[in-house]
Amino acid sequence: MSSLPAHVDIAIVGGGPVGALLALRLAQAGHHALVLEARRETSADPRALALSYASREALERVGLWDDHALAATAIAKVHVSQAGSIGRAELDATELALPALGYVVGYDRLAKLALDRLADSDAQVALGSPVTAIRRLARFAELEVAGPDGPRMLTCRLVILADGGKLVGTLGDVVQTVKPYRQHAVLATLTPNRPHHNIAYERFADDGPLALLPRGDDFTLVWTQSPEQAEARLALPDDEFLAEVGTRFAGRVAGFSAVGARASFPLALKTLDKVVGRRLALIGNAAQTLHPVAGQGLNLGLRDAATLADVLGAVPAARLGEEETLARYARLRRKDAGLVTAFTDSLISIFDSPNPILKHARSLALLGLDQAGPLRRGFAQRMVYGAR
């Protein structure tokens, strides 16, 4: 877009997958929405996303799914276990009559597809347009957007924050709480000695949980460590790093032959006291940022976007930013967001202690989940579709 309009019905701050899904859904509903994205193009990113089958359906509905462009790898099963115990549980897509529980894609591939689809759609998008301030009044919101010739202003009936930048801390009527985990996620690509057969692994070790996500013929490793451990593991020679990971997956995965470049990111839980304010709604990372242990963060954000699209698509333009409209979105998202956030956070506490008694209890819990068919299927259903 060469120039910003003076006014739009809806301004969406953030053109990542969550913001793009919402914008494309609103365009389908006939609403005048503008996506403001600080980036002009996507950059390389080592993160891999575990998207549920339901997330694929939501993305596919607006053309945000392309197997070739995303190089998506199906997850047929998820194997959950605890190191040093017999406790394990396995979730299987066939039990839910689905072709896959989910798919692994690169974040940078999905982010690029999102910008490409926005550019080719009826939705408006302004790249290289960082929002630097938001002012909200009773009847409209005003956004300040940085530009090469100085700040520009635009007004809207409703502003939606779809990424968790610094703007969240400036809102006043919405309060963010940050819980540092004092942990880093170590990321690496591992080549297994044997084919992975589209099985994802979640392994709870004494020094932090590890996840293996099938991606192409390889695995993407997500290993939660203390900052000091993460730094040490990044510095290890390849053979020693592979041996450390292999030891933790002994009896589950038949070792690894190679490791690619490694990286790490700090982890924290970020939540809000409410996801709506005056002329304002928050979705995705702006609404909550989760620990990656259960792979639910982006799936939760996409459900935020889909729910808000349903709510806004059912009201005329004049009611888009009204309190009643926003309250309905908040009410519809409360159960799913609350339960998934609490579940993800509790996993860190439950599996953090190496106490032998607690370890035995966790082992029994996993075995119980695996043996109780209805409970196992219900749990898998929640992981795919959220709490409904």
Rank of each mutant, 00 (worst) to 15 (best):
W65G: 03
G172N: 11
I86T: 13
L375W: 07
E57K: 10
E41H: 12
I12T: 14
A185D: 11
A100F: 04
W223F: 07
V259T: 09
I160E: 03
R139C: 09
P46S: 07
R331I: 11
T42K: 00
D9S: 14
L302C: 01
S226T: 15
S121L: 03
T42P: 00
Y53E: 12
R47M: 00
D218Y: 12
D149Q: 15
Q82G: 09
D92I: 01
E228M: 10
S2P: 02
A309S: 09
L127F: 13
A11H: 07
T344V: 15
A126P: 09
H291P: 04
V245R: 15
L367E: 14
A250I: 06
E90V: 13
G87F: 00
N355I: 11
S363A: 15
K112P: 04
R40A: 03
D66L: 04
L332K: 12
G172M: 13
L26Y: 04
A361N: 09
Q124V: 00
G165H: 05
T271K: 11
S264V: 02
R139P: 03
L171G: 13
G386Y: 01
L36A: 02
A138G: 02
R117G: 01
E240A: 15
G208A: 10
P195N: 08
R25N: 11
G172F: 11
G63M: 03
F351C: 06
A72G: 09
D9W: 06
G15R: 04
D92Y: 01
K166F: 12
F204V: 01
A387Q: 09
N193R: 15
A258W: 02
A243R: 15
V18E: 04
K112Y: 11
D122C: 09
V105W: 10
R362F: 09
P209S: 03
P292C: 10
T307N: 06
R109H: 14
E231S: 13
L36I: 07
A287D: 04
A365Y: 00
I10L: 10
T247I: 06
P180A: 03
R388A: 14
R135A: 15
P99K: 12
K335Y: 12
G102I: 07
L332A: 14
S52A: 14
H31A: 08
E95F: 02
A314I: 14
R117S: 03
